[in-house]
Simulated assay, not measured.
Amino acid sequence: MSTGTPGYGPPQNNGYPGAGQPYGYGAPQPNAAQPYGYTPPAQPGVSVGDGMSWAWSRIADNAVVLLVGFGLWTILGRLGAEASFTLNGVEYHYGLGIPGGGIISFIATLISPVVLAHVALLTSSGRKADFKDFFTFPNFGQTLLALILSSLAIGLGAIFLIIPGIILYYLFTFVQYAAVEHNLEATAAMRYSMRLLSDNVGVLVPFALVGFLLHLAGAVTVIGWIVTGPLVALMTTYAYVRVQGRDVARYPSQG
Rank of each mutant, 00 (worst) to 15 (best):
S57Q: 15
P28S: 03
L72E: 05
G24L: 00
L184G: 08
N183R: 14
V180N: 14
D50R: 14
P22Q: 13
F135E: 01
Y94M: 08
G51E: 10
K132T: 10
G102E: 13
P28Q: 05
F106A: 15
V203M: 11
Q21H: 08
D130Y: 00
V115S: 10
P30H: 08
S253C: 04
A55I: 06
P41V: 03
V227S: 06
D50K: 15
Q43D: 12
T109Q: 14
S57C: 05
L116H: 02
P6I: 00
G7T: 08
V46P: 01
N88H: 14
G157A: 12
Q176F: 08
F172Y: 15
L168T: 09
Q43T: 15
L209M: 10
F174W: 09
P164L: 06
A63H: 07
Q254H: 09
F131W: 08
G7S: 15
G18W: 00
R58T: 00
N14C: 05
G24E: 09
R127P: 07
G102D: 10
P6G: 09
V210L: 12
G95H: 02
Y251F: 14
A179W: 09
L122N: 10
G9T: 13
G24P: 00
A32V: 13
G100C: 02
A60I: 06
P44N: 13
S47F: 07
I226P: 06
T123S: 10
V241C: 08
M194C: 11
Y25S: 02
Y23N: 03
S112T: 11
A55Q: 06
N31W: 11
A55V: 11
L156W: 03
D130Q: 05
P41D: 06
G37E: 09
W73G: 04
A32M: 13
V243C: 03
L66E: 03
Y36I: 04
N200I: 13
F174C: 08
A83Y: 04
G100W: 03
F207K: 04
F135T: 10
L147K: 11
G157I: 05
P35W: 14
V210F: 05
I107T: 12
N62D: 12
V46W: 12
L79A: 13
P17V: 12
T3Q: 09
G141E: 04
N183C: 01
Y177Q: 15
Y16D: 13
V48S: 11
S47D: 14
L121H: 10
G211C: 07
T187S: 07
G157L: 07
S112C: 01
P40M: 04
V243W: 13
A188Y: 07
G155C: 02
R195A: 12
G15F: 11
I98Q: 03
S198G: 11
G255E: 15
L122Q: 11
L145R: 01
N200K: 09
V222C: 01
Q12T: 14
V248H: 13
V68D: 11
P113H: 01
G7K: 10
P44R: 10
